[in-house]
Amino acid sequence: MEKTWNNNAWFMVLPVLVLVAFSAVIPLMTVVNYSVQDTFGNNEFFWAGTDWFQDVLESDRFWDALTRNLIFSAIILAIEIPLGIVIALNMPKKGIGVPICLVLMALPLLIPWNVVGTIWQVFGRVDIGLLGRTLAALGINYNYVQNPIDAWVTLIVMDVWHWTSLVVLLCYAGLVSIPDAYYQAAKIDGASRWSVFRYIQLPKMKRVLLIAFLLRFMDSFMIYTEPFVVTGGGPGNSTTFLSIDLVKMAIGQFDLGPAAALSIIYFLIILLLSWIFYTVMTTSDAKG
């Protein structure tokens, strides 16, 4: 087939290119620029090579934060994905319940991150928070300001509350696309509830689950606002994730070089892990 070349088309994509350049490529390059230089102020920069990268990779601080991130994301995925599936499976498929459920599910997604953080920060406070007071009244010793485990539990519950809906909505979209005939055939074939899930619903949800998984992984791995608002990275360093560490480094200590190096490493880790998940999940999909 003949291909027709239309050079005018390039003008059409130009605005997007400019936008992407200013919003992504140029800032990223600035960061790359910082990461290989040193400065003592006065806008004088010296070539530093890979020193900052070595510093970052050799610091315990980095590995500790990375470990926290990995554990946090693993827990988030392990809770939100199955919970999201279970809720989606139990949502009504028709009738008045559908719009009600959808609105309820969408509500947490509409609340900005810092507001979610603030809500939970107040909600969990032992002196005035509803949750904190209730737990105290029940004799449960809960204090996210002092106890690292409580701080983690608070962050996890908060994230689950905030983001499980996303998984639910994606799964639900996959489920409603299954024609009735499939469920009818399953009944005729004597399939159990589990078989229906395993052989009809799960395969249909696979694609959306992949998206949900990647979105929740990337997002939880980059978590910043909530721990910043609720725990500020503490108690101690127990909730200091890479992002928090990064901000401390860049803005708190004004170590632009190491912070830039950390940013790039952080970015590459997310890219790498997402790519691994994507490849693993799509190849297993192809094999069936």
Partner: peptide, 8 residues
Amino acid sequence: FPVIYDTM
């Protein structure tokens, strides 16, 4: 209309 179990 055909109903098959895709993954089997």
